[in-house]
């Protein structure tokens, strides 16, 4: 197993899939000659040429729709939307075309596109470049939503997404492209559904996905060392469908739950997980679950305000302590 970066893992998945199948293409702004904003498509233009590594015009809805149309005829486009903030412009084609065409055609036509985008707050990018949109995508019938928390998942989820007969939205994070992690040397396909226990524990479950998995892991470390609390961390890499059984299993074991997300509430990912806990295992709970989420505010620019908006591991620790009556 080699240690590689998150962006390298994504690049490797592209490269392998494009080498295997001449109908796999990738498209997006600055992905070709320029190598990609986050280097996720580095070197592919040189290798596969402009017909398969398409530098698109700045027309999010247009090129997303073009990818969807190409997928009708068996082409497998991996579409990069430079930043999730711009995905709003492509929403018509994602929501109205890609996600619905299988259903409204009675199963005759499918749009097996992969749409990848970088979301989340980076460093002081302000109101129009810091959005989290996973909560929007996960409410769309006909669309799969996955979100890798490490390079192994970034590689394996993209591999599986390319092979999926369904449209898949992959939610990446601007701050994670340089994160290092072990990725199997051999070909690896991560399941598109389910969840993973990232750390086993007995006293409380910390639910996270993507970047918040890392807040949870760090919080679990602190809780173990300083407070003698054994926290289990569950990584919800699939946001649609959510792993109801996995959520239930962990809560039934620990009887307490904290949900951490960078999305804002109300109407966040945590709202949905809390609803699932209610529906699946309410009577297993020893205490009401707690959500950790961003403030409902257009992302402020000032460093201190930004910090106050976005939660981190300390907020997770605080939430757990509150749950245990220690705060």
């Amino acid at each position: 197993m080699a240690e590689i970066m998150y962006w390298e893992a994504i690049q490797r998945a592209h490269d392998e899939e494009m080498a295997r199948d001449p109908l796999v293409i990738c498209m997006g702004e600055d992905i070709g000659v320029a190598g990609g904003t986050y280097k996720a498509t580095k070197g592919l233009y040189e290798k596969y040429g402009p017909l398969r590594v398409m530098d698109t015009p700045i027309s999010e809805n247009g090129y997303t729709g073009l990818g969807v149309g190409a997928s009708f005829l068996g082409v497998k486009p991996i579409i990069e939307i430079m930043s999730v903030n711009f995905a709003w412009l492509a929403m018509d084609q994602i929501f109205n075309s890609a996600a619905k065409v299988r259903y409204m055609s009675g199963g005759q036509l499918t749009a097996p596109v992969v749409v990848r985008s970088a979301g989340g707050a980076a460093h002081q990018l302000g109101a129009q470049h810091s959005a989290r949109m996973e909560k929007v995508f996960m409410g769309i019938a006909g669309l799969r939503v996955v979100t890798p928390s490490n390079p192994k998942q970034a590689y394996g989820l993209l591999k599986s997404a390319v092979r999926s007969p369904d449209p898949v939205y992959i939610n990446e994070h601007e701050l994670m492209y340089n994160m290092k992690g072990e990725v199997p040397d051999e070909e690896y396909f991560h399941p598109l559904e389910g969840s993973e226990v990232a750390r086993s524990g007995t006293d409380v479950t910390l639910f996270g996905y993507n970047i918040s998995v890392h807040w949870c892991l760090k919080a679990a470390e602190i809780l173990a060392k300083q407070y003698n609390i054994s926290a289990e961390v569950v990584d919800l890499y699939s946001l649609s469908p959510l792993d109801r059984a996995g959520i239930k299993k962990s809560v039934a074991k620990t009887h307490k739950a904290v949900i951490a997300e960078e999305d804002e509430a109300p109407v966040g990912v945590g709202s949905e997980i809390m609803a699932i806990i209610n529906e699946e295992c309410f009577w297993e709970l020893d205490a009401p679950p707690v959500r950790v989420h961003s403030a409902l505010v257009p992302q402020p620019y000032a460093h201190n305000l930004e910090k106050a908006t976005i939660p981190d591991h300390e907020d997770v620790v605080k939430a757990v302590l509150k749950l245990f009556g220690k705060a």
Partner: peptide, 17 residues
């Protein structure tokens, strides 16, 4: 207006195939 890019995408697939 939804079908415009879908049509172009089908044409892209035809071009590739």
């Amino acid at each position: 207006g939804g079908p415009f890019p879908l049509a172009a995408g089908m044409a892209k697939a035809i071009q590739m195939k």
